[in-house]
C-alpha cells in the first residue's frame, strides 16, 4: 500500500479534489485562476468516496509525450492492425472468433487515435473527462437498448 499513499496521499476528499483543487489531474474541471478559501459548508457526501476516487486516479494516470516519430509509429501500428483485421476476416477457421476479435481490434485502434493523434493523453484532463463521460453514457445506454431489442418480451 506504500505506493498508494506515496502517490495519492491519504488526506484528500473527493469533493475537494473534484472541484476545489487546482491542477491538471484526471476527472477534473479546471479551476479559475484565483483561489481563496471556501467558507465552511456542510458536505453530506464528504470523505467516504475517497477510496473510489483513488482507484480512479490510479487507473487513469499516466505520462508521456509525442512527436512526428511517434505519430509514424502509431500510424504503422494502426495500419498493421487493419491488415490483421482484413487477414482475419479472410481466414475461414478464425471466423467463429470474428466478432470479438474485430471489436477488440477496433477498440485498440480507437484508443490509439484518441490517445495519441487527438492528444487526449497529453492534453487537459477535462477533455478526457468530457469525452469518456459521453462514451460511457452512450455505450451503457445503447447496450441496454440492444439488449431490450434482442430480448423483447423476455419472461412472458
Amino acid at each position: 500500500m506504500d505506493w498508494w499513499a506515496l502517490n495519492y496521499g491519504g488526506n484528500m476528499s473527493l469533493l475537494k479534489d473534484l472541484f476545489f483543487y487546482q491542477g491538471n489531474k484526471w476527472w477534473k474541471i479546471p479551476e479559475t485562476t484565483e483561489l481563496s478559501e471556501n467558507p465552511k459548508n456542510e458536505h453530506p457526501f464528504g470523505g467516504f468516496l475517497e477510496k473510489a476516487k483513488n482507484i480512479l486516479l490510479i487507473l487513469s494516470s499516466g505520462k508521456g509525450h509525442a512527436g512526428p516519430v511517434y505519430y509514424w509509429i502509431i500510424a504503422a501500428i494502426l495500419g498493421i492492425i487493419t491488415l490483421i483485421e482484413v487477414w482475419w476476416f479472410t481466414v475461414p477457421e478464425l471466423r467463429y472468433m470474428l466478432a470479438p476479435a474485430m471489436l477488440i481490434f477496433s477498440i485498440i485502434k480507437f484508443a490509439l487515435v484518441v490517445a495519441f493523434f487527438m492528444h487526449l493523453r497529453f492534453d487537459h484532463k477535462m477533455f478526457s473527462t468530457i469525452f469518456i463521460t459521453c462514451m460511457v453514457v452512450g455505450i451503457l445506454f445503447f447496450s441496454v437498448f440492444l439488449l431490450l431489442s434482442a430480448f423483447h418480451g423476455l419472461g412472458t
Binding site: 483485421e85 474485430m102 471489436l103 481490434f105 477496433s106 485502434k109 484518441v114
Partner: peptide, 23 residues
C-alpha cells in the same frame, strides 16, 4: 484535426461492425 480524427474513429467502428463482422 480533432473533428477529422473523430470522423476517422467513427469509420474504424463502422468498418469493424458494418463490414467485417456483418459481411
Amino acid at each position: 484535426g480533432l473533428y477529422w480524427h473523430f470522423v476517422d474513429i467513427v469509420w474504424i467502428v463502422i468498418f469493424a461492425l458494418l463490414y467485417l463482422i456483418t459481411a
